[in-house]
Design a protein around this nucleic acid. Structure first.
Lengths: 218, 218
DNA sequence: ACCTGAACACCGTTCAAGT
DNA sequence: ACCTGAACACCGTTCAAGT
């Protein structure tokens, strides 16, 4: 059952989330797909196990009230890097909403950091969801590039050329119809995944700072 | 080719994104799956067409510099509601990163509103990605509940009982291991999808207000 | 208890053949 | 140009049969 997770992670890294099929995992273990059902209820549970294994690699810092902004950013960077280390897992996370033991440990740690920082319980809870979702979504977008570069037939496909392609696409649009986009080509295509992730983190933390006592409408 | 989109949207609404197969769409049209390939390159293009059709329902307000905060929130609410009206489309959007003509029109309008509000071009561009991603992710989470309620065998499954289930789950955790979560059960499970979406919007706009001249690191 | 092969009911996509 | 049936190479899952 542990070797099942290991085999799944190998396939995930090599061929992406869609390639983690019952048959492929069983094949890597030298057996048939039906054998897996003795250890795992279905494909969804297998994916959930992979997800929680990856989340287990993320460090959660002890809450230090004076440094909550750095700490929450540091944690999210750890989660982001763990997902980038396992390309494809972000897709699994988006499809599942993680609830395994390691995910709980992360939520617990994030709540400790955020409430130590003076956020209300309600805002801390909402922030945990929002930060997790944001981190996952950016990691997912990064791996979309990876998959596309992988199975495209252009041997020069790489992160650089994807940006170049986007730049050419925006620049080629009719300026009359798209005055904003065509006048902002440079700004729209600058910055790699890491820089863009940093922007979102800075922005979310700034937003939390301003809404630490936000209340439900009505 | 227009009827293909209509058939796809019908299946999407009735059975979710996974049910929009070539065979199902062709079946609804009284033909075979192979016939669709005369009008559409592959399943991905079909999904992209559905996505752009839904995005076409979203209104984009004329930029009014004094009201950029309300305007951008209003736009995102429109996009959110359009996706909730077509359960399942959010999953398609997450998998594709929309680039159709209607998506371009939306990006153009958002950039106009945000730059009118005084955000730098760089921040406006990053904000468009972030807001679109946030809106899609929340709509997607909403429809996850919907799907689960749909195919669960519990006839009482509904939004209310999902929350009740989560509440019971959190309350049942060992307090020694999860002191934060168990002491915040009420706050963690309060607020429906709409209220949570509003929180994120308020937070993102507050964050943008504080980072309107953010620059790339280094 | 665990594993297996074979089968069932599905997929997306291709392709030769028709009109 | 458009449509079709049949086929290919896959899926997840079940189940009777083995050890």
């Amino acid at each position: 059952m542990d070797s099942i997770v290991a085999a799944g992670l190998e396939i995930l890294a090599a061929e992406g989330a869609d390639a983690v099929t019952m048959r492929a995992v069983a094949g890597k273990l030298g057996t048939g797909a039906a054998s897996l059902y003795a250890h795992v209820r279905d494909k969804g549970e297998l994916h959930a196990l992979l997800l929680d294994a990856v989340i287990g690699e993320v460090d959660v810092p002890e809450a230090d009230p004076a440094r909550w902004r750095e700490q929450i950013k540091q944690f999210c960077w750890g989660q982001y890097r763990a997902m980038v280390r396992h390309p494809g897992i972000a897709a699994v996370s988006l499809a599942h909403i993680p609830t395994g033991p390691n995910a709980l440990r992360c939520s617990e740690g994030m709540l400790a950091i955020l409430t130590a920082g003076g956020l209300s319980k309600l805002v801390a809870g909402l922030a945990v969801d929002l930060l997790t979702q944001y981190t996952t979504a950016v990691a997912y977008e990064d791996t979309l590039w990876w998959v596309r570069a992988e199975d495209g037939n252009d041997p020069f496909a790489s992160e650089g050329s994807v940006v170049a392609q986007a730049k050419a696409y925006f620049a080629g649009l009719p300026p009359a119809e798209y005055p904003m986009i065509t006048s902002m080509v440079e700004e729209l295509t600058t910055g790699d995944g890491d820089a863009r992730f940093q922007f979102g983190l800075d922005m979310i933390v700034a937003g939390l700072d301003n809404l630490r006592d936000w209340r439900l409408p009505g």
